[in-house]
Design a protein around this nucleic acid. Structure first.
Length: 321
DNA sequence: TCACATCTATAGGCCACATTCCTCC
DNA sequence: CAGGAGGAATGTGGCCTATAGATGT
């Protein structure tokens, strides 16, 4: 299954924290990360000094707009919106990210501590789940993963990352599989949710000094040198991975790409003329006209046309958006 | 705490047919 | 053994659906 293949490939990329070579996958670091999450600052209170780091986390969550501007998010499968290229803005302010439309809604629905996520993805654990799901779905393709990779690399290499046992932003809990699993199993809720932790989010400047003090000391389980070594080791291993789907026969891919489709399924060549009309019109914003014309045609000539001989009425309804 | 509703992600199936593989002569 | 013929198997991508899980009420 091609789609599954992509899912796994992206999942593997996202689960780099589960990588045995990733420096923070040991239990101690895991706990430290979770603890740091519980101590994270409110992104709205961030200072300009910390803005770059927070931008990174925002980029992980969403390429654009910044996550804290999203208010709440709702994801729509963009099947009906394919005329809008990925990453382009929608007229209603929503945006297509990968295969999904990220719709910006009323900000007053924001979670108090995590105002940039919908109810289903508010809270640190769900932020992780949110991104993981997006990464593991078609919404984030390999190129997107690669797009984020330099950001992560920059973070890993940055002094802040070196000194921080974990990135101190709620979104950073989304960085890896282990944390995601902790979130899904409820472990994170016991440590990281605003409800369970009466401590308010401290200012990044407030925590910065303590981090700076520990920068040269042994942070968590590894010293700075050990951490650097492990990071290099992880990166070396990561580069050896192959995230590209291997096409065994390029000619078949070409054929499949050019093959006419009806609702995603391959269609017969002898239906090509009619099918092309169906396929192309289904992707147009004004496809309503087409269906109206089709309806008239149906009324005039009965259920004529190969489309109706192959696909019955219940399938027809999906284009009614 | 439980039941229910809602929402979302995920896995897998479907489709046509050119190409590739395999068997037989 | 080599080569041809013929049939079976494979692979390809986009869409859809059933299902599970999470979350809110």
């Amino acid at each position: 299954m091609s789609s599954s293949y992509d899912l796994y490939a992206c999942d593997e990329e996202l689960q780099f924290l589960s990588d045995p070579f990733f420096p923070f996958t040991d239990t101690d670091s895991h706990i430290d990360i979770l603890q740091s999450i519980s101590d994270t600052q409110n992104p709205l209170d961030e200072s300009p000094d910390d803005h770059s780091l927070h931008q990174l986390s925002s980029s992980f969550l969403s390429s654009s707009p910044p996550c804290y501007q999203l208010g709440s998010l709702s994801l729509y499968q963009a099947n009906q919106l394919q005329t809008v290229p990925n990453g382009s803005n929608m007229s209603n302010g929503a945006q297509i990210l990968g295969g999904y439309e990220v719709k910006s809604e009323e900000p007053q629905l924001c979670n108090e501590a995590y105002p940039y996520l919908a109810r289903s993805y508010s809270g640190p654990g769900n932020v992780a789940k949110y991104l993981q799901r997006n990464y593991s779905s078609n919404s984030v393709d390999g190129s997107s993963v690669l797009f984020h990779r330099p950001l992560f690399d920059a973070a890993v290499e940055s002094p802040d990352f070196q000194s921080h046992q974990a990135l101190s932003s709620p979104e950073h809990c989304l960085l890896g599989g282990q944390i995601r699993r902790a979130c899904s199993t409820g472990d994170l809720q016991s440590t990281g949710t605003p409800q369970s932790t009466p401590r308010s989010f401290s200012s990044p400047l407030a925590t910065e000094s303590s981090f700076t003090e520990e920068a040269n000391a042994k942070v968590g389980r590894y010293s700075a040198e050990e951490r650097k070594e492990r990071i290099l080791k992880y990166r070396a291993k990561r580069t050896q991975r192959n995230f590209n789907k291997t096409i065994k026969y390029a000619c078949r891919k070409t054929l499949a790409d050019n093959r006419p489709r009806i609702r995603g399924r391959f269609a017969r060549n002898d239906e090509t003329g009619y099918v092309h009309k169906v396929a192309s019109s289904a992707r147009d914003d004004d496809d309503e006209e087409f269906w109206m014309a089709l309806h008239e045609e149906e009324q005039q000539g009965g259920r004529g046309g190969p489309f109706f001989t192959t696909y019955s009425q219940p399938q027809f309804q999906y284009y009614g958006y």
